[in-house]
Nucleic acid binder design. Sequence first.
DNA 1: AAGCTTTGCAACCGCGTCCGT
DNA 2: GACGGACGCGGTTGCAAAGCT
Length: 342
Amino acid sequence: MGRPPCCDKEGVKKGPWTPEEDIILVSYIQEHGPGNWRAVPTNTGLSRCSKSCRLRWTNYLRPGIKRGNFTEQEEKMIIHLQDLLGNRWAAIASYLPQRTDNDIKNYWNTHLKKKLKKLQAPSSGVCNFGGTGTGTGIETGTNYSGSIPVRGQWERRLQTDIHMAKRALSEALSPENNNNNSNNNNFCSSSSTKAITHHPGTNNKCSRTNSSSLTTQNNNFFVVNGGDTASKGSGGSSSNDNSVELSETFESLFGLESLDYSSNATTTTTTTTTTTSDHDHDHDQFSHQSLSPNDENNVFQENESKPEIIEDVMPFSLLEKWLLEEVACQDQKVITADAKFF
DNA sequence: AAGCTTTGCAACCGCGTCCGT
DNA sequence: GACGGACGCGGTTGCAAAGCT
């Protein structure tokens, strides 16, 4: 592409922000709201480029940001989500509304990577959170299937998402499972060969966090209407009963009901005002409503090319049939794959 | 106490995507 | 459909603080 820098080199200040600059920026945003970052430097007189202003706001000045001291639960969540989503920090951050993507990214790179390395060193394979040790998300992603070594991220995600949707549908439609999803130890079996982990408090359920994508993406999956499904299709308007059930399952799988995520998720599912395109998700709000799983976890993320197949709305019955056919075959492999972790 | 190394984090950079024209 | 501006994301860098010798 070869785009020139977003701002002219001369006259643009770089480096750490001063308190004075912070005050100017905050007061401007309090008055005008975030967004239209291009106009911020000119309107405020700040010698900063628009990007820098946006970054400073979203990563530091925005209200409600929690800094430092990641709790154990947050750690776990990040680890799981990283395993699930790869290095999609914005998506991960959407599950931790008080944390910024940058913060999470830094924490991962500085703390969690090492921590996991240490954990993996003595007993490899037992609690492999998904990586090769050098651990980027991309690498993690390659573990999805040995049969698809080099594919786009969206394909890997799609594979997992589809499988999870299949499973969910299968289970939702089978009467005997309706009453005991929470006790179903097979619930979260995954098509991937990625690692799984146990949470002591979750009744020995597999806590594979694919369920998170399942929770939210499943909704989108059936209401698919293109890349904006999150805001258009699922923002509380989902009529899919499974969504409630799956959402609960997601929470129970995490064992994180007490986390802010829960309340946040609740908030978002009852919020119908999120009309911004999902790529605006963490910037056009003072609150963090749109920093929600519903926004972020479409089958395809905003930055990725979206395969056409998903763009079209398939008749539900057709989809249903397809899912059920497939899930039967895949369960066999999956259970086999997962079984070795127990 | 001084110098060196490591760590942690704020900020920057480049690229991809979206969206209006 | 092509183009360009604006925005968002993830990787990387730079520097201050902390730790170590």
